[in-house]
Every structure is written in structure tokens, then in C-alpha cells.
Design a protein around this nucleic acid. Structure first.
Length: 473
RNA sequence: GGGCGUGUGGCCUAGUCUGGAUAUGGCGACAGCCUCCUAAGCUGUAGGCCGGGGGUUCGAAUCCCCCCACGCCCGCCA
């Protein structure tokens, strides 16, 4: 515990590894707003990045933008061919919400009308032929939707360090160079001039018969590119990419590329038993749930505080509401299926973010009321005097923090951090109930030191979860 | 049909890699606790043949085999 106090926020930080890790996450098709089904990916990716940073690695997070794929082609066709007057009104004034209407309507028309399908095919073809005008249109549309997604992610405290567009891999010939490497592989063969990789009983097609690239090839090019810039790669992918991921690793291995990515697969968040779909418009958007969480949190704040300014109320509502959303998703192992339920996502009690935030606020409040010199706690406290059961239990809980970081990183299991945060909070709340601090007959300094150490860890662990630690709530 | 994953009280969940003693918590329900540092808290009660069956073992939620249910994938889409 002395170490914990002396190190402050640095406690739990593992030795510097001098290793660069690139974490790829989110990488959602820029065709519309992020929905809750997709939100699991960025939350896992961002948390794992923060865990690795804490574990001593140099982490870069990256969003792989599919700006030339079919989804953007459909979106672009819609934007160029459908007048806004033929669309339903947008559910909110936000660029990704507005543009997704074109995507959805284009999908509808594509199914009903072969001419539309052909139009979209034509777009795909010209992008593959390197038509600069089409590329410009695609990137513009993709950028616009990305703007909206970034805004949503930022609100959730998720920022990518870099973005890599698929088109850039074609333009700089990374795809061509990957292709020539692959052609030399004995597992690669051609069928009607289309190159494929033979893996078990599966054929993974890398190019079309006309020589244009397919997603697996471009993804390999991307990973070769990434491998040249990092010591370790982590990808966060949905479970629908399992086969793809496995073959990509095999292919990279066959090419002798290193590092091979470690892939964290997560299952989807379904809604009312069904998978969410951007195309069909069957989803709850991330924006929607963030707004609702904020509102719910505001109600809760107002229920118990009448002494705060409106500004303060809104600030707390944002911290608490969004914390609840992030926590609810990260607390469960990635591979477990989740069924989205409003009352769980907006749960503010028990195993939830507000519970942890509340413990932090309590700890902060004690230190704040005391108002002394915190640095003195380290030198003046005789920590051996903290020998009562509840004190010892809390100290032990705090002490394992570095081990928790290490195993969460090693197992690539962000939910371990969430569970730990809950455990510390529960233990702190029991300590809070059983042992007076400021009114302690003796041991006040010692207990203050323990409160301070708890507060440090709580705020640090919340930070790893990307959740704000409030000073009061 | 094949591959991968998931299955733990009414609901959600930890533990499964690395087997160990009465299986972890939460929500909900019920019963309590604010003259005392924030009750978004705390305490107690009820609720579980750990999907089913077989096996390995002194010992299995955990390892092996079979089966069942659910999800994802099985395109010259991504």
C-alpha cells in the first residue's frame, strides 16, 4: 500500500516493454451511424488499448476505413441518384443519420430494380479500375459518415490515433505487392484466372477473374503494412469474421510475415432477439442510447441533489450515463452473446459504472473534507496500524491491481478490469460503512491514506475503462 | 450438413486456459439500516442436480467423448 501511495496514478503500471502495439478496432463500414450491435467493438478495442498502455506498451489505435467497398458504393449510388424528397425525414440532425437514409433506400431499390443493381456494379467496377472521379466521390461520402461516427465515439471517450483507408493501399501499390508475394505461394492457385488460397476444404478467393482485388487480399496487404510498423498487432473483430481471421493468419504465416495479429472476436449485441442491421434500419443507434442514458442519469441526479447548478447536473449526467453504457458492455466476456435491454444498459445500481463512480466520489469527498496535505499521508501514516479485518481486506484488494492489469492484458480480457473495479468499490463501500475516517478516534491519518489509495485506484481503473471518475455526484 | 462459439437460480454474470473443500456477484422479490464522512450505499432471507448423458480422476462448472439448444460463418460480398 505504501507503494501504491507513493506511486499515485502510476501504481499498477507495468514495466516499460519498449514494444509498439497497433490495435485495430471499430473499422465499421462507413454507411451509417454506429448502432449498439457495433458499439461493442470500439468499447472492447478502446479498453484493451488502455490496458496495454497501462501494461507498459506503446499503443496506437487504428480504424481501417473501407472507403471503396460495396457498402460505400451503395451509399454513393443513393446520394447521387435519390432526391432527398423521396426519403423519410432523418431521426436526427447528424450527418451519419442523414446519409444512412440514402443507403437504406438504395438497398431497397437495388433489390427491387436490376437497373439499380447494375448501376452499383458499375460504380464498383470503375473504382476497381482506378477511376479517380469515383474514388473522389466514394471518399467524400465515406468521410462524411466517418465524421458522424467519430463524433459518437468521441462522446464515448473513444479516439483513434490513426485511420487507414483501404483505397490508400491500392493507390500506394501495397495490394499489388501483396498479390505478387501471394502468387509465389504453393497454396495459391487459379480458377478461371481468379487467384485463391487453398486452406483445408475452403477456397479463399483473393482476386476476381478480371484481376481486381477482393477483401481478403486487401486485408492481407493491410496487415503486411501494419506488421512493418509494429511489434505486435491486435485486431478486434466481430464473430462473423472468424473464418476470415483464421485464414488471414494462416496466409500471413505462410508468407513469413511477422507479427501475426492476435484477434479478439466478440459476438454481437442483438436487439429483441434479432441481430441489428444497418441496411434494414433495425437497430438502436449509439447516439440514441447515449442520449437516453444521459436523460436517465439526469433524473437520478435531480432525485438526490437540489444544490447543484444546471451545468453541474448536466456534467454529472453525462459522466454517469455514458459510464453506464460503456460499463454494461465491457463487463461481459467478449465471446458471450449479449441481448440488448434498455433497463440493463441504463442500470445505475449494483454492478454498474455509477456504483464505481459513487465509491470514487465518496473517497474523494472524504479527502476533500479533510483538506490536509495529501503528500503528508505517505510520510505520517503508520500503515501497520491498519490491522482490522475490513481494512486489511481493502488493502489486499488494492494490492493486487498490478496483477489484475497483467492478467487482463495477457488474456486480452477487458471484462476482468470491469469486475475488479466493481470488487474494489464493493470493498470500499463496506470499509466506508464500518470505519469512520474523519471521525476516527485514532488512526485517522492511516485511514485517510487508505481512502486516498482507494481513490487513486478507483480513478485509475475507471480511466482504463474509459469512464470519467466524478468528484461528486 | 460442416466449422467455430455460447449454455451457470426468474433475468444478467464471475469462475473454465492452469481440476480442489459449503459455486462469485448483480438485477428483480421479501425483511431491515440514514440524530454519524453522499442510502446511486450497507445488512439479512428465499432462489442453483453449473444444458443433458457418459468417461478420466482421490476430487469435475473446469479435462475427454457423445447428444441437445441457441448464435455466427460456409459468395470471384465485406
Amino acid at each position: 500500500m505504501r507503494t501504491c501511495l507513493e506511486m499515485g496514478e502510476k501504481f499498477g503500471e507495468l514495466s516499460k516493454k519498449n514494444q509498439k502495439i497497433t490495435v485495430e478496432h471499430t473499422s465499421a463500414n462507413p454507411n451509417g451511424p454506429l448502432h449498439v450491435g457495433r458499439a461493442r467493438n470500439p468499447i472492447i478495442g478502446d479498453t484493451i488499448s488502455r490496458i496495454y498502455t497501462k501494461a507498459g506498451y506503446d499503443v496506437e489505435t487504428q480504424f481501417y476505413v473501407d472507403d471503396i467497398g460495396r457498402q460505400v458504393a451503395i451509399l454513393s449510388w443513393g446520394i447521387s441518384n435519390i432526391p432527398e424528397s423521396e426519403l423519410p425525414t432523418s431521426d436526427r440532425k447528424k450527418i451519419d443519420h442523414e446519409l444512412v437514409r440514402y443507403y437504406q433506400e438504395a438497398n431497397r431499390r437495388m433489390e427491387a430494380d436490376e437497373g439499380v443493381a447494375d448501376g452499383i456494379k458499375k460504380l464498383m467496377k470503375s473504382i476497381e479500375e482506378g477511376d479517380e472521379n469515383t474514388l473522389r466521390i466514394f471518399s467524400e461520402n465515406s468521410d462524411k459518415v466517418m465524421l458522424g461516427m467519430k463524433e459518437s465515439l468521441e462522446r464515448l471517450n473513444i479516439l483513434h490515433d490513426s485511420y487507414k483507408t483501404e483505397s490508400s493501399l491500392i493507390v500506394d501499390c501495397s495490394v499489388d505487392s501483396a498479390l505478387s508475394k501471394l502468387e509465389g505461394l504453393e497454396q495459391c492457385e487459379r480458377e478461371d484466372n481468379a487467384l485463391y488460397f487453398e486452406g483445408g476444404e475452403h477456397k479463399i478467393f483473393l482476386t476476381r477473374g478480371d484481376g481486381t482485388s477482393l477483401y481478403p487480399l486487401r486485408d492481407i496487404a493491410y496487415h503486411i503494412w501494419k506488421a512493418g510498423r509494429a511489434d505486435q498487432l491486435i485486431d478486434v473483430l466481430g464473430e462473423d469474421h472468424k473464418v476470415h481471421g483464421m485464414f488471414m493468419k494462416n496466409i500471413l504465416e505462410a508468407l513469413g510475415i511477422r507479427p501475426i495479429p492476435d484477434i479478439i472476436f466478440h459476438s454481437f449485441v442483438s436487439f429483441e432477439g434479432k441481430r441489428m442491421s444497418t441496411r434494414k434500419g433495425a437497430y438502436v443507434t449509439l447516439d440514441e442510447i447515449m442520449d437516453l442514458a444521459h436523460e436517465r442519469a439526469r433524473d437520478e441526479v435531480l432525485k438526490r441533489r437540489d444544490d447543484l447548478s444546471q451545468d453541474e447536473v448536466e456534467k454529472i449526467a453525462e459522466m454517469v450515463g455514458l459510464g453506464a453504457v460503456r460499463y454494461n458492455i465491457i463487463r461481459v466476456q467478449p465471446e458471450k452473446p449479449m441481448n440488448f435491454k434498455w433497463d440493463e444498459a441504463l442500470n445505475f445500481q449494483g454492478n454498474s459504472a455509477p456504483f464505481i463512480q459513487y465509491a470514487h466520489a465518496r473517497a474523494f469527498s472524504i479527502i476533500d473534507k479533510w483538506g490536509g496535505d495529501e503528500t503528508k499521508l505517505i510520510s505520517e501514516a503508520d500503515l501497520d496500524r491498519l490491522d482490522e479485518e475490513g481494512e486489511i481486506r481493502l488493502i489486499k484488494k488494492l494490492a493486487v491491481y498490478p496483477i489484475v492489469i497483467d492478467s487482463a492484458a495477457g488474456l486480452k480480457a477487458p471484462h476482468i478490469i470491469a469486475n475488479y473495479a466493481y470488487d474494489v468499490s464493493a470493498q470500499f463501500n463496506q470499509f466506508y460503512r464500518d470505519y469512520p475516517v474523519l471521525k476516527a478516534e485514532e488512526k485517522m491519518i492511516e485511514r485517510l491514506a487508505l481512502v486516498k489509495a482507494s481513490k487513486n485506484i478507483l480513478s485509475d481503473v475507471l480511466n482504463i475503462l474509459g469512464i470519467t471518475a466524478p468528484e461528486y455526484m
